[in-house]
Each structure stands twice: as C-alpha cells, then as structure tokens.
C-alpha cells in the first residue's frame, strides 16, 4: 500500500501500463463507514496476560495503523494523504511544532472543523479540520513501522511526549484530534470502531501489562 512514484520507461507493455493509475490526491472511494473493532471484553478469554495484552494492542493497531492516523504521523517532514498514503498535495512541510511553514501553515487550508466542498470536484468532498490540526512530532512517527515498534514507541516517554501510560490511555480515549479519525469528513473512510471502544482497548492493554509482542 505504500506510496511510490514510478517513472514509466519500459518499451514493452506500453498500453497496459500507461493508464494504470494517475490519481494523485483524489479521496478514498468506497466506504465512508467504520470497519468493526472488537471490544476489550472479547479478549477476556485469553488467559495469558501477556498474550491478551498484545492481542488487545493488535486490535487497537487497526486504528493506529489506519492511514487516517499514520498520515499525520509521517516518518519524514511530509504528511501523507488518502487511503493510498501518498504524499500530501500541495507539498506541505512540517515546520515549527508540526504546524506547517510560514506562508503555508496547516491552517491555511485546515480550519476549526471539517469543511464540505460544495459544487466542485466529486473526488474531493471535504477538507479536514480541527482546532489543533498539526503533525505528530517526528519522534512519534508511525509511517513504515511495525506495530511492535509503534507499541514500544508509545510506551517510551522519550518518544511519546513524556506521557505516563495513564496519560496515554487518556489521550487515546478522549483527545479530540485523535477522535477526528472517527469523524474525518465526507469522502474519507473513518478508522475502525469508535473512540470509546478504542480507548477501552488501550486501557485494557495497559492494565494487562502493556505488552508489545
């Protein structure tokens, strides 16, 4: 699923490869409804605490590794876009505090709330928005990382903004920018489940020892 730009130059199969895909930032097609997310209670049957803990985090990982979340936890200074996770267009850059560069800060386009695009391209139904729209700091990058690596990173105060596990739980369960993932606006697939179920999974993961493998 990783974005890649290829230079076409093959002498054979021209017609076959030529028109394969030229979309750049067209929004997701298909579903605008959340995929299911299992509640924490369904994991009670796993008796081994460590196994249960990791299973809980793997379930939560369906949210964490969803493009909706990873797109703003990029590994470079360029955020990503769409389910295809291609680089953001226009080409914006992290800037101070992940708020973009002077002259084109995030809020040049991203307002206090999602904005429906009316009467323009049907492949661009809305512009996302939130009062504190910004990129996650580079030490919190998730792009390209395994779920285990992301898990260890989330637990590491050096790389999680100095948070305790309790604070992590609170952040995941109640932060409204995290919550945007479930209300991403028209034309965007939300992350699975609900923030409440996700918050419970994280809480149960912490309670069960916060295993990362």
């Amino acid at each position: 699923m990783k974005n890649r730009i290829i230079a076409l130059g093959a002498t054979l199969g021209v017609a076959a490869s030529l028109f394969a895909a030229t979309l750049s930032v067209a929004q997701d097609t298909g579903t605008e409804t959340s995929a299911p997310l299992k509640p924490a209670a369904e994991f009670q049957s796993i008796t081994d605490a460590k196994q249960r803990s990791w299973a809980l985090f793997e379930e939560a990982g369906k949210v964490i590794q969803h493009p909706r979340c990873v797109n703003c936890h990029p590994a470079t200074d360029r955020p990503l876009q769409t389910m295809a996770m291609h680089k953001h267009q226009p080409p914006v850059t992290r800037g101070d505090g992940g708020m973009g560069m002077p002259g084109m800060t995030c809020n040049t386009c991203h307002g206090q709330a999602n904005v429906e695009v009316i009467g323009q391209a049907e492949t661009l139904k809305s512009i996302p928005g939130h009062p504190s729209w910004h990129l996650a700091p580079i030490e919190m990058a998730w792009e390209g990382k395994s779920l285990g690596d992301i898990c260890r990173q989330i637990k590491d105060p050096e790389r999680n903004g100095g948070k305790t596990l309790a604070e992590i739980t609170e952040h995941m369960a109640h932060d409204s920018l995290v919550g945007w993932g479930w209300q991403p606006g028209a034309g965007r697939e939300p992350v699975p489940g609900s923030q409440a179920v996700f918050g419970e999974l994280i809480a149960a993961w912490v309670e069960s020892g916060a295993a990362c493998e």
């Binding site: 226009p90 080409p91 914006v92 850059t93 800037g95 973009g100 560069m101 002077p102 002259g103 084109m104 040049t108 386009c109």
Partner: peptide, 21 residues
C-alpha cells in the same frame, strides 16, 4: 507577504514551504 512577515530572510526551502500551494 505572509512568509516575509515571519521569515524576513527566507531560504529557497522557506520559499518552497510558503509558495508551493
């Protein structure tokens, strides 16, 4: 103008950052 109000002596990268949109 917005760029220069914050970054009085912009580099080429600063210019790209402000103007690529």
């Amino acid at each position: 103008v917005a760029l220069l109000q914050v970054t009085p002596k912009p580099s080429d990268a600063d210019i790209d950052g402000a103007m690529a949109g």
